[in-house]
Structure formats: structure tokens, C-alpha cells
């Protein structure tokens, strides 16, 4: 393909569009054609999400990988096996096709990692300045096995709270990149598909409920659980897995890792933290620093953290993303 940037004509639906789809998207997603829709079976889980990250490429990932993991993880945490994705692209006039190919590569590699096929899509081109490079929307389709019903309704006092690893890494990677903080080595996003993590949980313990800890972080999910169930949740500060680099950036900017977005971490509520569960999680590359971070209880009303000093600090629901501060 001779063109190296997207022009408005690529969004026309005519020859240029067909060529773009054939040569950039369909060939890479290994589909003979890439239509707007595809038919699938029943007992389906469906989800959709849009991705507008800035910067588009960041340490540990890019918008392509994010658009696949984000949607796959939404399917996984409701207990379904992710199977198909459809992807919509809004691309800014002037965007480099080489960069677009990089993003598409990322999407396909990540999809293949999870055994997911990208089967349909749509592209639109907008005038220069009308979007930041590229926006991606992915809709995911998964199949829920019979007998798997994950819901906050299942949660009971005594259940354990588990996370599959260190908290806050994605947000810290993005802040460092966007704000040019110049931290070295550059903190990496944890962007990852969690289908195997969920499988381990389903096989080694009674998994009550799971949610991926994206915007709002772990603390937000726990507050949602409290709102749904009325059961209290207490976290143990000394059990929280936090990378030193993330901890340093949080101290620098006055942020709390419990409220920061992750892209490869989930909160799981399980009946018991079995040895088998922990050893299998910790043997997995996306679960090596998994930890039991707290428990569900009737002792308190709300979400709390027990500090290393023994005091209980409330963890309230925030209204918005936490802001860096100097004071």
C-alpha cells in the first residue's frame, strides 16, 4: 500500500476504505473479509467499551492491546470464555498508517494470546483535530459455561478478597508518560488478559464474584460490593501488593494505589484462599504477586483498611479520578 497516512477518503466507504480494510485490518486479523456484523451461538456474554488513552503508545502497552484486554477482561470476570471481538475505529485525518499497523498488530497478538478472534469491524475517518489520533471501540462476545454464575449475591461474610498482583501500575505508567516526569526506568503498565487467572480461580476455589480493577481501582469495586450487599470489607495494609516504583510515584504525587486504575488486575471474592489457588496464581505470569488482601465481614459497615499501626481507615467511594497534588 503506497499511502502512509489516513486521509478523509479512507472513511468514504468506497475503494480507499475497502483497500484499507483489506490491507491493514482483514489481512492482520486473518479474516477473508471484515464485515460490519457476524452471527454467533446462544448463552453468550456480550460487552463493549471504548478506548481513548493518551498517549497512544506507553511503556507496557498501547491503545491496541488495551482495547483487547479491557474487553476480554470484562467478559472473563463474569465467568465467560472470551471468543470474539468486533472493533470500531475512529481515525484522525493525518494519522500515520505505519502507527495504525502497529496498533493493529498489538490487537491481534493480544487477541491470539487469549484465543480470541477479531471477526468484524468498522472504520470512520474524521477531520484533523476531531479526535486524538485514534479511538477504538471493541465489543466482545464470550460463552458462559453452565453452572457459572458470578454475582455479588453470592458473597458471604468470611469470604476472602484476592487480587492477582501489584496495584496502580497502569496509572503510574500513564502519568509518568503524559506528564513527562522523567522517571527511569519508565514504570510499565500491567495491561494483560486475565482469562487464565479466572480459570484458575474457578478451578481451585469457590469464586463468588470478580471484577477487573480499572478506573477507580480496587477501592471503588469494594465500595460497589458494599453498596450491593451491605456486607463490610476490611483490607490489610501489610498484605497489599504494591511495587516499589508505584509506591514512590504515589508518595511523590499524593496518590493512593487503591484508587488507581489497573489494566491487568482484578478483584476476586472467593470462599477460601486455598493453597492450590495461591500456588497456581503465583505460578502464572499475570498472577505471580497475587495476594489475599482482606476479608468480607459483618464487623463493619463499609470498606476499611487496617493500617500497619492497627487503626481502621475508611475507604470511601471517590467521585472522580484522584488528582496528583503537591500539598
Amino acid at each position: 500500500m503506497k499511502d502512509d497516512i489516513i486521509i478523509l477518503g479512507h472513511g468514504s466507504g468506497a475503494g480507499l476504505t475497502r483497500r484499507l480494510i483489506r490491507e491493514v485490518f482483514a489481512s492482520r486479523f486473518e479474516m477473508p473479509t471484515l464485515d460490519d456484523a457476524a452471527c454467533v451461538d446462544h448463552r453468550i456474554a456480550v460487552t463493549t467499551d471504548s478506548y481513548v488513552v493518551d498517549p497512544l503508545f506507553f511503556p507496557g502497552g498501547d491503545i491496541g492491546r488495551l482495547s483487547v484486554t479491557g474487553t476480554i477482561n470484562d467478559l472473563c470476570v463474569c465467568g465467560s470464555e472470551p471468543a470474539y471481538l468486533v472493533a470500531g475505529f475512529i481515525i484522525e485525518e493525518g494519522f500515520s498508517i505505519a502507527r495504525l499497523r502497529q496498533i493493529v498488530d498489538s490487537m491481534q497478538e493480544t487477541a491470539m494470546e487469549a484465543g480470541v478472534k477479531i471477526i468484524a469491524g468498522d472504520t470512520k475517518v474524521v477531520e484533523r483535530g476531531k479526535c486524538d489520533g485514534v479511538f477504538i471501540t471493541t465489543t466482545g462476545i464470550g460463552f458462559r459455561p453452565a453452572g457459572v454464575e458470578l454475582s455479588t449475591r453470592n458473597i458471604e461474610a468470611g469470604d476472602r478478597i484476592v487480587v492477582n498482583g501489584s496495584l496502580g501500575d497502569h496509572t503510574v505508567a500513564i502519568i509518568n508518560a503524559r506528564q513527562n516526569l522523567g522517571l527511569l526506568p519508565a514504570p510499565q503498565s500491567d495491561c494483560a488478559p486475565l482469562h487464565e487467572i479466572v480459570r484458575i480461580l474457578l478451578n481451585t476455589t469457590k469464586l463468588r464474584f470478580a471484577r477487573d480493577a480499572t478506573r477507580g481501582g480496587v477501592a471503588t469495586i469494594l465500595n460497589e460490593i458494599y453498596e450491593d450487599t451491605g456486607l463490610g470489607l476490611i483490607l490489610d495494609e501489610s498484605a497489599l501488593p504494591v511495587k516499589q516504583s508505584t509506591s514512590v510515584v504515589c508518595e511523590l504525587l499524593g496518590l493512593d494505589p487503591l484508587y488507581l486504575a489497573n489494566e491487568g488486575k482484578m478483584v476476586a471474592i472467593v470462599s477460601a484462599a486455598t493453597d492450590e489457588m495461591l500456588s497456581q496464581l503465583q505460578a502464572h505470569r499475570y498472577g505471580w504477586d497475587s495476594a489475599v488482601i482482606g476479608e468480607v465481614t459483618t464487623e463493619v459497615k463499609g470498606v476499611y483498611l487496617r493500617t500497619s499501626l492497627g487503626s481502621l481507615r475508611p475507604l470511601l467511594m471517590l467521585d472522580s479520578d484522584p488528582l496528583p497534588r503537591i500539598c
Binding site: T307, L309, S311, L312, R313, C327
Partner: peptide, 16 residues
């Protein structure tokens, strides 16, 4: 100082 206010809250010192 505001940072003391935050630290005292963060560590739950009033309750201790």
C-alpha cells in the same frame, strides 16, 4: 499544615 492533616487521617492517628 494540610499535609499533617492528611497524614493524621491516613494513619488513623486520631483513633489511636
Amino acid at each position: 499544615c494540610g499535609s499533617h492533616t492528611m497524614a493524621i487521617g491516613h494513619w488513623g492517628l486520631r483513633k489511636l
